[in-house]
Design a protein around this nucleic acid. Sequence first.
RNA 1: CGGGAUGUGGCUCAGCCCGGUAGAGCACUCGGUUCGGGACCGAGGGGUCGUGAGUUCAAAUCUCACCAUCCCGACCA
Length: 562
Amino acid sequence: MRFSNSFIPTTKEVPNDAVITSHQLMIRAGMVKALGSGIYSVLPFGLKVFQKVMNIIREEMNAIGGQEFYLPGINPVELWQETGRVESFGDIMFHIKNRQLILAPTHEEVITSIAKAHIRSYKELPQIWYQIQSKFRNEPRPKSGVIRSRQFTMKDSYSLDSTSEGLDKSYNLHAEAYKKIYTRSGLKFFIIGASSGAMGGSGSQEFMIESDAGEDSIILCESCDYAANLEIATSNKSKINFGSSKKKEKIFTPNIKTIDQLSNYLKVHVEQCAKSVVYISGKQAYLIMMVGNDQVNESKLKSVIGTEFRPCTDEELVELFSAEAGSIGPVGVSKNIKVIADNRLKDSTNLITGANINDYHLLNVDLLRDCKIDHYSDLRQVEKDEPCKLCNKQLRLTTGIEVGHIFKLGTKYSSALKANFLDENGKENPIIMGSYGIGVERIAACYIEQNHDEFGIIWNKALSPFDFHIIVVNVKLAKVVEVADNLYKSLSEKYSILYDDRSSVSAGVKFKDADLLGIPFQIIVGDRNLENNSVEIKIRRTNERIIVPIDSVLEKIKNIYE
RNA sequence: CGGGAUGUGGCUCAGCCCGGUAGAGCACUCGGUUCGGGACCGAGGGGUCGUGAGUUCAAAUCUCACCAUCCCGACCA
């Protein structure tokens, strides 16, 4: 393609809206153009990259037996009411005003409705169905360019199985396919255990890129392969033990509100103080007990109590406990209040807790003797530098961008929509499903985050919009143009070429644009080397320059490319 | 939704505090000179100063409301 006829609007300066590198470079390289907050037009140069990504995904999905669908982006709202997801998506889902339709944020419902209509027997399973299409989410705060936008391209696939062993197999096929997709795309990625959140289901993993621009907090072990989203991460922080049970006492603790104040005042270790935090879910109050300054991990709490919740207000505290924050505790609370304690507190003795009387605490509380704990669970948020639960080495806390997420859904959607099949015994069962998503634009953006320098993008062969970038340095010299034209023609037979034949800009502009656009190999045709019947090949990533005689240039290029 | 910032030509920004003819660089058009790392000279075109009210003889500038965008937080299949 001749640059002179192309629409590749490169810019020297960055719009002040773009903050992260990939966003800035995508705009400067003329890949995308913002239309509104979280809404982007994809321009030809960018589309070529996205198409490369989509083709890699398509090849790997086909390789595990996936079959591609094209599904509607507008869906009847009734379908989503049946699975309860109109409510669970809430404001994230776009609703069409003049029809009972929504813009699909994902496609479990549509896929399941197709399965319901056509799958009858276990003999028709398993199936892997996928699509690569636009999804719509009314993000409250779009950010970081195409990384979090309101319309984006996602490869979503869905596995349909008749057994849980089958689901495991489909899930693992996807995990392996995803590793190949990211590896082929040139991303440095890792896999973490993740929460399945509102998607439901029994297990899930995320594929992450480490990045300061990331929105997820991740716990990683430096010496083994433990890795988990902070939402579910656990560590080897041990249970507490304060010896055999002593006599409970009530003590005066004036104006003591925090665990740190309490431990200072009483000259005890913070971990001997048990913190009580209260949440409300619907009409139910939950008193959550944690060791010392351990933080409640609300994702874990949500999976324990199973519904949405909110912190208790100060007024409600007084109503429920006759005491204010800082003096709340588990001893003698109403039976209507559920008490859930973190695993570290299991059957602990000699704790210090609030007395449910302002300015008083209790010493030597024995959880077995003095109060009724309804349930113990892992509720604490892991902190950095804690010991790994697998190898006991230090854990690291970092942030990442999610580029893929795989879920074992189970029968949540098939049950809701009655997508059943008959098993070997003629018994009707809901189809066992998995769902597996990859963000197309995110792969491209994350690649740029990981592969750029001060001059621009550095594409690899897999994602580069073109194989070679030919630059003709001086278009006034007929001989130079002739050589470049011939090279363009002969290379075009086998490779995709961006040919910078522009007469309107100086050589310097062409060089800067070439580095910005980041095509891996530049072929520079200028009179300086032509005097020696040579052209120059520049490797974008290493800045290595190779002078090649014209008569061997095709062979040399072939070698360099492979 | 809470906190903060910004809105002036296509882009980056100055001007606003202290009201009085709307500016610079880049980009664009024309002419000329250059021609291997974002060239130079000359001449041009292009702006309802986010929108709407208000104060004032006079508003880009002061006041109020609204809108938009970005950042932090909340949220995030």
